[in-house]
Amino acid sequence: MKELIENLKNEIIESLNLEDVTPDQIEADTPLFVEGLGLDSIDALELIVLLEKKYGLKIDTAEEGKRILYSVRTIAENIIRSRNP
């Protein structure tokens, strides 16, 4: 889990071009959208692509997206759950 969280932080920074953000600035539980990292709707769509490409995690509905993409930890939990259904 810990390793996965660290990997995710790096991948998020890279795929969303968060140039001036370092992995240790992203807390595992900070909300990614609006108040936290300030990501927007395009970032959300890009994250969906990243998670499917890299981890085979499919997000089909907006509701699911909101829940899974809440924080780095919720993403990691869902990846693990999808591997061991």
Partner: peptide, 9 residues
């Protein structure tokens, strides 16, 4: 095949 929304826009 993973079209990127942030490139497409």
């Amino acid at each position: 095949y993973f079209p990127s929304p942030s490139v497409f826009v």
